[in-house]
Amino acid sequence: MRTIMIGGLLCCAATSAAGQTVYPLTAASRADPSVRHGTLKGPFEFHSRIFPGTVRRYWVYVPAGYSPARPPNLLVFQDGQRATNPDGSLRVQNALDNLISKKEIPPTLGLFVTPGNLSQRYPDNLGMSNPDHRVEEYDDLDDDYVRMLTDELMPEVAKRWRFSSDPRRRVIGGTSSGAIAAFTAAWHRPQAFGNVISFIGSYTSIGYRAATATTPLVPGGDLYPGMIRKSPIRPIRIFLQDGSADLDNEHGNWFLANQQMVKALQWANTNADKQGDKGPRYDVRYVWGTGGHSDDHGGQILPDVLRWIWRGQMPAKR
């Protein structure tokens, strides 16, 4: 086991017998019987008008002590079946339990959403596998997915549980294609999401479709670095993580793509400073590891990422 400090985050990595990097979960992501536990409600099924013919599942994490009179922060996380898997790499509900109970982050409502599946009912045999409409929802660069969240699903959730309307108190996150979906949501609607968590983000050409005689070209996520450099800065706080052994295939090189994202965000800030722009700046932090296309590293650092995202929102300790 080796312990390293990266950008203020403490990361513990080990090497398996096969020579692969392993990132074990920290205590902050393990179930702790001594803390107050929130409740994970669901799964519920939801049919979207924006994505007709699809069905998705979602879960709602209700923090301990929840009161509608004090709407909590909001965390939306893609691939909800894996994010809430009690034996998985993320175990987001455990991190929320521990951090909220210890007053390290504010009370936070969690909304964990699967991609849509082209069926009337969500298949019970999918388990942790991807539903069949994931690429069309997560890897496209249009605003359909965020409209589904903000105009359909979130109002449905709000009928039972209130949450903050302040974008600074909302974060959207995910891993792989779920990460680019999170960034796309905040890119289109920063007034809805002011914070992004991106683990092993697929800023590659998965969503690209070539033009035909009857259909236009559909761009892929590899265009984002150029779009960031040539577009007005959004008021977004974003955390990115990736590993040097991530995928390299016909869609692109994941590690290079994530580095390009960081460089573009940093350049946009520097250029705005040079131009004397009085507008917002990207608040960026990143951690690179040596792992592959896995949620392990993201799961290990998730508690620290949540502390960083919500920094300044807790009362000063006396």
Rank of each mutant, 00 (worst) to 15 (best):
R56C: 10
Y58R: 03
Y58M: 03
W59C: 00
W59H: 06
Y61L: 01
V62M: 08
V62W: 12
P63I: 03
A64F: 15
A64E: 15
A64N: 13
Y66F: 15
Y66S: 04
S67W: 12
P68N: 06
P68R: 13
P68F: 10
A69Q: 14
R70P: 00
P72K: 03
N73E: 11
N73A: 15
L75M: 14
V76Q: 00
F77G: 00
Q78F: 05
Q78G: 00
Q78D: 01
D79R: 03
D79V: 04
G80A: 05
R82W: 06
R82V: 11
R82D: 03
P86Q: 07
D87R: 01
G88V: 10
G88Y: 14
S89Q: 08
L90R: 07
L90K: 04
R91F: 07
V92W: 08
L96Y: 15
L96M: 13
N98E: 13
L99V: 05
L99W: 14
S101P: 11
K102F: 06
K103E: 15
K103T: 08
K103R: 15
I105W: 10
I105P: 05
P106R: 10
P106N: 10
P106S: 07
P107F: 02
L109T: 07
L109V: 12
G110R: 02
L111P: 02
F112M: 05
T114E: 11
P115F: 08
P115E: 00
N117M: 03
S119Q: 12
S119G: 14
Q120P: 06
R121L: 00
D124M: 04
N125I: 01
N125C: 03
G127V: 10
M128I: 11
M128K: 08
S129N: 14
S129G: 11
N130F: 13
R134S: 01
Y138K: 08
D140N: 11
L141P: 05
L141W: 10
D142R: 14
D143Q: 14
D144E: 11
D144R: 15
D144L: 13
D144C: 12
V146W: 00
M148I: 01
M148F: 15
L149H: 05
L149W: 07
T150H: 07
D151G: 06
D151F: 06
D151E: 15
E152V: 03
L153N: 11
L153D: 09
M154A: 09
P155S: 05
E156L: 12
V157R: 08
V157L: 10
S165W: 11
P167C: 02
P167D: 03
I172A: 00
I172D: 01
G173D: 04
G174L: 06
G174K: 07
T175F: 09
S177A: 08
G178V: 08
A179G: 08
I180L: 14
A182N: 10
F183Q: 04
T184P: 02
A185L: 07
H188I: 06
H188R: 11
R189W: 13
R189G: 00
P190M: 08
P190H: 09
Q191I: 01
A192W: 06
G194M: 10
G194C: 10
I197H: 04
I200Q: 03
I200Y: 05
Y203E: 02
Y203D: 02
